[in-house]
Design a protein around this nucleic acid. Sequence first.
DNA 1: CAATAAATACGAAGCCCTTCGTACAAATTT
DNA 2: AAATTTGTACGAAGGGCTTCGTATTTATTG
Lengths: 127, 127
Amino acid sequence: MNQRIKPTESELEILQILWQEGTTSVKCVHEKVALKRDIGYTTTLKIMQIMTEKGFCTRVLEGKSHYYTALVKEEDIQNGFIDTIVNQVFQGSAMDLVIQTLGNYKASNTEISELKQFIELMEKNQK
Amino acid sequence: MNQRIKPTESELEILQILWQEGTTSVKCVHEKVALKRDIGYTTTLKIMQIMTEKGFCTRVLEGKSHYYTALVKEEDIQNGFIDTIVNQVFQGSAMDLVIQTLGNYKASNTEISELKQFIELMEKNQK
DNA sequence: CAATAAATACGAAGCCCTTCGTACAAATTT
DNA sequence: AAATTTGTACGAAGGGCTTCGTATTTATTG
């Protein structure tokens, strides 16, 4: 179960946009990617075509251009990455990942109380 | 700061062994890797040579064979991965990573109290 | 001494990902 | 009608990682 198909870094970048925008054109995706780094239009297009082959998204022809929609859920992809990092980097200990992340990160008061609330919920569900 | 040099999956596998064993020979590393998957001796050797070039480890000739030692700290590598996943997969929200990891994972009572303790510590340090 | 064993070194193949250049098609503009 | 624009499709180059085969060296063993 561990090794689901993981999107590459570029694919992830595009998935983030698809998750945010819903269904969109290559042009729209490309514009957003191009804001962050230098990249040719056909590069974005090609990656999106490959993503379609891999089943990360579908596309529909509407007029002249294609409109793409993500087929994978953000949460599932996130979980895949968590799984990988826990096993490959934290020797299987999810709690180590959690604690080290918390340790690196200055949490705000709001975040801390949210976290505490979440833990309480965990405790209740456990019983 | 974000994009430190990240070891590949194979390199990570070997780093785990070096971290655990301290200074060891290729033979020893290879035996441990070979327990988990099919791999030729020269493959392990090659990866360790490349890791040395990249600065992940050093080696010392002792008699006939080389003894390798990790040069990078486990914690630093872990943090690099956390950083990457937070930015690429969780849109920069470390707390989202934490909560989702906790949600996926059945924590024991012991782990939960450890976590709570850690959070208290965070709160104190924050003030 | 010859053969075997134990190591390292090196190079090349295969695969995947990224990146573009170029070609092609259809519509729009001049 | 010709030229430009807007899109898609495709192929190939380049780089990195993994993998192994082969060569080489040195020591050990028969």
